[in-house]
C-alpha cells in the first residue's frame, strides 16, 4: 500500500483479442478520492480497461499500477486491496443474500466481530436487510446489483472498480445506486466506474470519454462541456423536424440535435444567431414555445466529439 495521491496509473495499455484491438495504448491516471467515470458507447473498451486494471486479465502490452502494485506481477496484492464489480451478475444465484455475503467474507478473511459489523453495514446501506434469506436469483435487477456491490465491498477496499453497475436497472434504483456511490466517495473511497449513460458523468469528479479503445477526452464534467464547439441554443417547438431543417440551413449553425420537442442548436455565437433563428422559424410558420441559451451536457459534448472524429476519418 502506498499513500501516494495517485491510485491508478496506466501507461499505453493495450489488449488485443485476436485481430480486434479492444484497448489501444490507453494512458490514464486516477487520484485518490476521485470518482472517475469511463463513459462511452458499447464496444468502446470500457469493460476491458476495468478488467485489466482489476488484474482480472493480463494486458497485451503496456504497463499499469494500481495502488503502486504492478498489474502483471502483483495481481494478488491488487486483489486484496480493491473491490471489483463485474458487469454481468456474477454471484451465486442459488445462494441466499447472506450466504453470498458470508462466502465472500470467507474468501477475503473478514471474520468474527468485524464480519458481523461489516455485513450489518452493507445490508443497511443496500437496503437488503429484510431479504437476507432470499436466493439471489429471486432478487430484482436493482437488488442484484446492490448485492453484487455489497459483496465487492465486504473487505472495505480503498479502490472500487464498477463495470456498468446501473445498466439494465430502473431509474429509481439507478439514482439510489449513485447515492450509495456518493456516500462511499464521501467516506474516502476512490471509485472508477464505467457507464454508457452520459447523465451519470455529471456525478463524477472526472470523466474519460472512451471511443474505439482509447480515451478520446479526459476532463471534469465542466471541462468536457466547454469542449463542445461553440454555444448551445435550446429551442422548444411542436414541429421539430421542420425547425431542424430550417436551423441546419442557417449560416453560423454548427450542428443540430433533436430531443422530442426540444432542438439543440450548436452555434458560433449564440447572441447573434438567436434572433436570426427566431426570425427564420417565424417566417416558415413554425411555432416556437421558447428559445434560450443553454449549458451543453456531457452527452452533447460527447456526441459532437464523436461526430467530429468520424467526420475526420
Amino acid at each position: 500500500m502506498t499513500d501516494s495521491p495517485i491510485v491508478v496509473e496506466a501507461d499505453r495499455l493495450s489488449r488485443r483479442f485476436g485481430p480486434i484491438v479492444a484497448v489501444n495504448e490507453l494512458s490514464l491516471t486516477v487520484a485518490r478520492g476521485e470518482i472517475f467515470g469511463l463513459i462511452g458507447p458499447d464496444g468502446a473498451g470500457k469493460t476491458t480497461v476495468l478488467r485489466l486494471l482489476a488484474a482480472v486479465m493480463p494486458p497485451s502490452s503496456g504497463q499499469a499500477r494500481v495502488l503502486g502494485f504492478d498489474i502483471r506481477h502483483q495481481a494478488e496484492r491488487i486483489r486484496q486491496a480493491i473491490g471489483y464489480m463485474p458487469q454481468k451478475f456474477s454471484l451465486y444465484a442459488d445462494l441466499t443474500v447472506i450466504e453470498n455475503l458470508n462466502f465472500f467474507a470467507d474468501l477475503f478473511n473478514v471474520r468474527g466481530a468485524r464480519r458481523h459489523q461489516r455485513i450489518a453495514e452493507l445490508l443497511a446501506f443496500s437496503r437488503l436487510a429484510e431479504f437476507t434469506e432470499r436466493r439471489a436469483a429471486a432478487l430484482s435487477g436493482g437488488m442484484q446489483k446492490k448485492l453484487a456491490l455489497a459483496c465487492a465491498l465486504i473487505h472495505n477496499p480503498q479502490v472500487i472498480f464498477l463495470d456498468e453497475p446501473t445498466t439494465g436497472v430502473d431509474p429509481i434504483s439507478r439514482r439510489e445506486f449513485w447515492d450509495i456511490l456518493s456516500s462511499l466517495h464521501v467516506q474516502g473511497a476512490t471509485i472508477i466506474v464505467s457507464t454508457p449513460y452520459m447523465d451519470e458523468a455529471e456525478r463524477c469528479s472526472r470523466v474519460g470519454l472512451m471511443y474505439e479503445g482509447r480515451i478520446a477526452e479526459c476532463d471534469t464534467p465542466d471541462g468536457l462541456r466547454r469542449l463542445t464547439p461553440g454555444e448551445l441554443l435550446a429551442v422548444w417547438t411542436p414541429q421539430v423536424m421542420q425547425a431542424r431543417r430550417i436551423a441546419a440551413a442557417l449560416p453560423g449553425v454548427l450542428e443540430v440535435q433533436t430531443y422530442g420537442d426540444l432542438l439543440h442548436v450548436f452555434v458560433h455565437d449564440a447572441a447573434a444567431i438567436a434572433p436570426q433563428l427566431a426570425q427564420a422559424l417565424a417566417a416558415a410558420g413554425v411555432p416556437v414555445t421558447e428559445i434560450k441559451r443553454a449549458q451543453p451536457r456531457v452527452e452533447e459534448a460527447f456526441i459532437s466529439l464523436i461526430v467530429g472524429r468520424r467526420a475526420a476519418t
Partner: peptide
C-alpha cells in the same frame, strides 16, 4: 459460464 469465475478471480483465493 455463469460469470462467477470473474468474481472469484478478484478475491485472494489461489
Amino acid at each position: 459460464e455463469q460469470g462467477t469465475l470473474e468474481s472469484l478471480i478478484v478475491t485472494p483465493i489461489r
